[in-house]
Design a protein around this nucleic acid. Structure first.
Lengths: 212, 212
DNA sequence: TTTTTGTGTATTGTATACAAAATTCAAATC
DNA sequence: GATTTGAATTTTGTATACAATACACAAAAA
């Protein structure tokens, strides 16, 4: 077996990403390479690589020769993200209709269950993480690599948005029930209902951006 | 007006991208930071940033602590890309159906015309570029930033694929006529026909991956 | 008071130096 | 001959040094 040590750049990337999704780094906050380098005890080189990768995922914005800052996602952007997300998830359902679940059904079910559990013990962070993994698993069942990587990028921003509308996840139990309902519909091959539910589910989560 | 000099990393990024799309750099070819640095007369730092960005766009593959190489796109990957592309372009058409063309129609038409012209003078590179811009313009008319950036990533690989199947763009004039036909259908609000044509158009271009 | 200009400071962009890991290839072993 | 081993070489990963640009704030001008 080949052991590959994670590079400092990768570690820093994950750490900064977590700090953004934890809310430790606020949206719009300026960040300097020097202070991050000092914070993580590394040189600026891996910090720069991490920041540039985060920029590609839309979590960080780079002002050339000036500074980096955490992204701010406007309501319009949030609406765009939700619209595209609906499109991609429906595309995945079409694929499942044609080709079946592949081998992902157990994983999908497990993430739905873990959402329920995390909710019941009040672990919001874990709940959000499992919710992302649930939707990613549906996408992954298509085995379409282009789709999977496009969704991965979108998911980074979806996760940011969840942090932002921190307080506003109303009717959480209904939201979580939709997961199990969706699984049932897919098992029973009721694809049109599954699509309708997916749209409702995403609009439900995206909240206010669909209310106008 | 603020003059911002393009960074060396950006210049190198564009140069390497062009070399890949020109075929100067072959698919699967190993590339070393040192030799690129020497070739461009810069240090490894901007080279590394460029390579990492290219990796995010799927044009380059990084083997950690070992080497970088130009991506190889398999037939399965090409099929995935074409499927997703169809989905995204149909999504854009739905948007145009709801909201109209926005102000992009002149630009769309111009790129279609430039495709025709480039074809007539036998400028393949320019033809491919304008073809990409034509489809990008349709996507841009939705004004959905998430969609636009997702498509931009996909487009990088679409361009690579066009280079690969260099000789096989058969029935080019038919392909180009489809551009003008599509514009006419959209002007006349014949959206279902436009969608059918889009599917045909993309499958036509993607060639062999749809032939099984 | 408001605007402009200039200078010092802080920050990013790039080059270079060094450390660590992977690759190569020849010699040794089976 | 095929495989393994190990040192030499090459290449990447990271730190540091320096250059160039942007920023902040005070002094001067309108």
């Amino acid at each position: 077996m080949k052991i590959v040590r994670e590079s400092l750049a990768d570690q820093v990337y994950n750490s900064i990403k977590n700090e953004i999704l934890n809310g430790e780094l606020k949206f719009g906050e300026k960040i300097s390479e020097d202070s991050l380098a000092e914070q993580f005890g590394v040189s600026r080189t891996p910090i720069r690589e991490a920041l540039r990768r985060l920029t590609e995922y839309g979590l960080v914005v780079l002002a050339p020769r000036s500074h980096a800052s955490i992204s701010v996602i406007s309501d319009d952007d949030a609406k765009d993200i939700a619209d595209l997300r609906i499109n991609l998830e429906l595309f995945a359902l079409d694929h499942i209709k044609e080709m079946g679940f592949s081998a992902m059904l157990p994983e999908i079910s497990r993430h739905a269950a873990d959402c329920q559990y995390s909710s019941s013990v009040g672990d919001r962070a874990k709940l959000f993480e499992e919710d992302s993994l649930f939707h990613q698993a549906i996408i992954k069942s298509t085995r379409n690599k282009a789709l999977i990587s496009a969704y991965e990028r979108l998911d980074a921003k979806i996760q940011m948005l969840r942090v932002e509308q921190n307080e506003s996840v109303n009717a959480l139990s209904e939201y979580l029930n939709q997961h199990t309902m969706l699984i049932e519909l897919l098992k029973n091959k009721e694809y049109e209902k599954a699509k309708a539910l997916t749209i409702e589910h995403i609009k439900h989560e995206s909240g206010r951006v669909f209310q106008k």
